[in-house]
Design a protein around this nucleic acid. Sequence first.
DNA 1: TATATTAATGTTGTCGACAATATGTCAAGA
DNA 2: TCTTGACATATTGTCGACAACATTAATATA
Lengths: 241, 241
Amino acid sequence: MADFSKPKSMVDQIYLSISKAITTGILEPGCRLVEQDLQKDFGVSRAPIREAIRLLEADGLVVVDAYTKKYVRNLTREDLTDNIPVLACLESLAAKLAAEKITPEQIEELEAINREIQHEFTAGNFAQCAALNFAFHRTFLKVADNKALRRAIRSIVKSTMWLWLTTQYYKNNTIIPSSIAEHGLILDAFKRKDTHLVENQVKEHIENVLDRFLKQSKFDTEGRYQFKMPPGHSVNAAPDI
Amino acid sequence: MADFSKPKSMVDQIYLSISKAITTGILEPGCRLVEQDLQKDFGVSRAPIREAIRLLEADGLVVVDAYTKKYVRNLTREDLTDNIPVLACLESLAAKLAAEKITPEQIEELEAINREIQHEFTAGNFAQCAALNFAFHRTFLKVADNKALRRAIRSIVKSTMWLWLTTQYYKNNTIIPSSIAEHGLILDAFKRKDTHLVENQVKEHIENVLDRFLKQSKFDTEGRYQFKMPPGHSVNAAPDI
DNA sequence: TATATTAATGTTGTCGACAATATGTCAAGA
DNA sequence: TCTTGACATATTGTCGACAACATTAATATA
């Protein structure tokens, strides 16, 4: 059957566009979002722009100051440390649920992804590594097959992980090799069908990844993340909020 | 210092009103939300109404069909079963974090709430019991002091617990006494400073509460929850939300 | 009577305009 | 030079209107 999926609504398109611009670092944290400017960019009136911004606000990607001006949210160290145990807890639940029903084929799928990460890393293609990393976690989240869990995890990933994404991919660091090794441990536990071990390995993996990220990241005296624009992106000076 | 908190914006007020109407059962699941009607109810134009509905949509309280009509979401059995392990996982994380830093005064606060639940139950005031139940959990969530965790739990409670609330408070069932007893076990574990035990007691408590709820609830053949309007509420009216 | 066609209605998506408020500029006076 | 106030500008909040589309009712035709 052909795919007759509806064309996305204006609001959805705007939402996705801005969302992507933020999560890829094109729009810097602290950058203002002015409805009139966006209106021109998208060639529509302000109504759909405003609705899209409301959704971004609900996602935590956009914040509003006391005078109702809108800015791209800038994460603080506290935001990240708060999220560590929550994401670790949810991902390990996903792993536990997945472990109870994962098939050999699905384990092979995970292994293939992990090999691909290794491959892209040696090729120096770090952006691709980050993407595949997400794919790895999405895969066993899919096996877990729990909508509420997916929603909860996506919410956290969406509101915080983009930072990790925008910085990791232009730094040749040690995060990726460590991740690959830890994925290997997780896969071993899956193969042994040791649910408890899977749970713990995933929990530790998430904690490690975020801890490593925190250690190599710069925050200012107020705890705000010091954003560095990836090469190849224009910088539009942004007021600090 | 006086409280100069700004008056809430129109959108916030509308959002809160409709939100409350849904979570308390004044607006039934499956009920349509028509912008023109809401416009009249609130005496404003459609723009702020639409923005508020977008937020409700992001919360999962409102769904949109293929023809972009809006309805109050109706939960299915699957929604609830999916949410059980997630909420149990998050609440037990909250309990764990709280156990590490809770003070005797805060434990006393929790005990006071639990005694109050008992008191309201014997007085037959079940609605109040439900509210105090939420207060109990909110209290140690506050002690845990983790914004990300609060956000995640609130999201789940908001999108699903309203149902639990609306039904529990007009039924004289066994849920409340069991909850009170389990709260007692949790309090004992807090007093012993046994973090691990606290974690497990809370996890079991949440699982039990939701399981008991599922058992006494009616679902149609499609798995949709069979809504029953609490007494004292008119069915279609609603506007005073 | 059943079905196809057309008209009327209901509802959402989008637009442009105006009002309200905050911010920035600049000249006059101390 | 520094403050003060008036004015211009920037930005958001809200409104009413229209277009687009789906739904229902009414009508005509077999």
